[in-house]
Amino acid sequence: MYLKMYEELDQTLIHNYCLSEKKLRYVREPKIAIALTKKDPQRHAVLVFENNQLVAFLTLYEAKGSSPFSTNENSILVQDFSTDYRHLGKGYAKQATYLLPAFIHQHFPAIDQLIIVVNEDNVITQSLCRQAGFKDTGNCLPSVYGSQVFLEIPIKKSDSEENQCS
């Protein structure tokens, strides 16, 4: 399994991506999320592949401290995390969650915190995030779309990076 940043060449894959009606309660369709990334340079679409098949999708949002989710200038927020309907129940979202910190470190070296906001009734996503090491922050927002749980995980720098002199 691997993650990669979205490119225009991937448009056909996005066009063929399927979400259930239930999942649309929680996330934007990838084509809508990608349209937002084109308007906002702080948003980044990420594709998740297994055996060269697109199995999951998410966006990353660099809030740069101007977010109700964190005051950390070096945080990034996961949004629109979904699995293609045809690939549900195969563990792809769980695997992607484990791969995210290293992927973020590779593409966004200044980021030191990864945040995901999950609807309280979306217990499956909460569970897979917690298994990957995410912790509940205890933060909350006004309940516009229902109660939400804020989960975060630190993005660790490698030992060689931490030992470098500035």
Rank of each mutant, 00 (worst) to 15 (best):
V78F: 03
A96C: 14
G133A: 02
I115N: 06
S66A: 12
T83S: 10
V118I: 12
C129R: 00
L151N: 01
A33I: 03
G146E: 05
I124D: 12
V118N: 04
S70P: 07
D121I: 00
S82W: 03
Y2L: 08
E73N: 11
S75C: 03
D159Q: 12
I104Y: 05
K94Y: 12
R28D: 15
M5H: 12
D121F: 00
L99T: 06
L19V: 02
V117P: 01
A63S: 15
T125M: 10
G146W: 02
P41G: 07
E120I: 07
N74F: 13
E120F: 06
A45P: 04
S75L: 05
D80K: 01
K64N: 11
P101S: 05
E162P: 00
V144G: 00
Y6L: 07
L36E: 14
I104Q: 07
C18A: 11
K135R: 11
P41D: 10
I111E: 09
F69Y: 13
K38W: 02
Q148K: 03
Q113L: 12
G138T: 05
K157Q: 12
F57I: 07
R43C: 12
C140R: 09
H105A: 14
A35Q: 10
A63D: 10
Q42I: 10
M5S: 12
L100S: 06
T59N: 10
S166G: 13
Q79T: 08
L128Y: 14
I115W: 01
F150G: 01
G65Y: 09
F150D: 00
V144H: 07
